[in-house]
C-alpha cells in the first residue's frame, strides 16, 4: 500500500474547509448536531470515520496526536488510526495525555485531567440522544428545535419505577449549556462528570450519520437526573489490581474458566504511569 498521491491528512482542501465551517458552527451552538457532507474514508463507517474526519480537518504538522480506544493506546483500532495519521499527515504521536495536542478517542475520556489548549475528538456511532425513543431524524430535529426532552425524562423515570435506578450505563444523555440534549458518545457514565466545565475543547464526529457537534471549554454539561434520584457513577469494590488506583474506570479481566477474574484500569497509560511511579495493586504485590 502506498500513500503517495493523497493529500495531507488524506482529505482534500475543499472537504476540510466544509468540515471546518461545520466545526465552527458546532462550537457556536454547543451540543447541537451540525450536518456535514461526510465522505467515505478508507476505514469503514462505524470504525471512527467521524472522528477521523474531524481530526483530519484540524490537524497540522505541529500537532502531537494520541489515539485511544476503550481507554487503551494499544487496541488494534487505535493503532490503526494512529498509523493512518502518521502515514498521511506525518504528525508526531504519543501515548502520554499531557503531551498530546489532539486526542482522538473511542468510548473513554482519559483519567489524566485535560488541559486548556487540548482538543478531544470523540468517535460517535450514534449522535442522536433520542434515537432509541424516536428513530426518525425528521422528528428528533423538531424535538431539539423545541427543546422538548420530556420523552427522555419519561424514559429515565420509567427505569427508576421499574428497577429503582436509571438503567443507562454508557452514552448517558447530557444537557449542554442548559439547552441541547447531547449524546456524549458511548463513554461510560463514569466519564460524564469530566465533560462538565472542561478546560479542553471537545469535538464529536459521527461519520456515518454525517453530523458533528461540540462542547466548548468551560461549558456546563449536566447528566440528566431527578432530585430524588441524583446522577451517580459506577463504583468498584476493589482498586485496580495492577496500580492500586481507586479513582479510575476498571475493566474486568477473566483469568480462567472457574470464575477467576481481576479488575484493572481501562486507561492503560494512567495505569502504567502509576506503576512506574511505584504504586502497586494486589496482583503485583502477590507476584513480588
Amino acid at each position: 500500500m502506498t500513500t503517495s498521491g493523497y493529500n495531507f491528512a488524506y482529505l482534500d482542501e475543499q472537504t476540510k474547509r466544509m468540515l471546518r465551517r461545520a466545526l465552527l458552527k458546532a462550537v457556536a451552538i454547543p451540543g447541537y448536531q451540525v450536518p456535514f457532507g461526510s465522505r467515505e474514508m478508507p476505514l469503514p463507517y462505524g470504525w471512527g470515520t467521524g472522528g477521523i474526519q474531524v481530526t483530519a480537518a484540524i490537524l497540522g504538522t505541529n500537532d502531537v496526536l494520541k489515539v485511544i480506544d476503550q481507554g487503551s493506546d494499544d487496541t488494534v483500532n487505535a493503532v490503526n488510526i494512529r498509523r493512518f495519521f502518521a502515514r498521511t499527515a506525518g504528525v508526531a504521536t504519543t501515548n502520554r495525555t499531557p503531551e498530546a495536542t489532539v486526542i482522538q478517542t473511542r468510548h473513554r475520556i482519559p483519567e489524566t485531567p485535560l488541559a486548556a489548549g487540548q482538543i478531544m475528538v470523540y468517535q460517535v456511532p450514534e449522535p442522536e440522544p433520542l434515537h432509541r425513543l424516536e428513530p426518525r431524524e425528521a422528528v428528533t430535529r423538531k424535538l431539539h428545535a423545541l427543546a422538548d426532552y420530556g420523552f427522555m425524562h419519561v424514559k429515565l423515570y420509567e427505569d427508576i419505577a421499574r428497577y429503582g435506578h436509571i438503567a443507562t450505563t454508557y452514552d448517558y444523555p447530557v444537557l449542554v449549556n442548559d439547552r441541547y440534549l447531547m449524546a456524549p458518545s458511548p463513554i461510560p457514565k463514569f466519564d460524564n462528570p469530566k465533560l462538565n466545565h472542561s478546560p479542553a475543547l471537545q469535538l464529536f464526529g459521527a461519520g456515518r450519520e454525517k453530523r458533528v457537534y461540540a462542547v466548548p471549554p468551560y461549558t456546563k454539561v449536566e447528566s440528566l437526573d431527578f432530585e430524588d434520584h441524583p446522577f451517580s457513577v459506577q463504583q468498584w469494590d476493589a482498586p485496580c489490581a495492577l496500580c492500586g488506583a481507586s479513582d479510575s474506570f476498571l475493566d474486568e479481566v477473566v483469568l480462567d474458566d472457574v470464575g477467576g477474574r481481576m479488575f484493572v484500569c481501562s486507561d492503560s497509560e494512567y495505569c502504567s504511569n502509576r506503576q512506574a511511579a511505584g504504586h502497586a495493586g494486589s496482583a503485583v504485590k502477590e507476584a513480588a
Binding site: P44, Y45, G46, W47, T49, D69, Q70, G71, T75, N77, R106, H107, R108, P125, T169, Y170, D171, P186, I187, P188, K189, F190, R208, Q234, F249, L250, D251, E252, S266
Partner: peptide, 18 residues
C-alpha cells in the same frame, strides 16, 4: 456494512458498564 461489522470492535468499556 461498516456499522454492522463495527460490532466486532472492542466494546469492553460499554460491556463492563452493562
Amino acid at each position: 456494512s461498516g456499522f454492522v461489522q463495527h460490532l466486532k470492535l472492542p466494546h469492553y468499556v460499554d460491556f463492563q458498564s452493562e
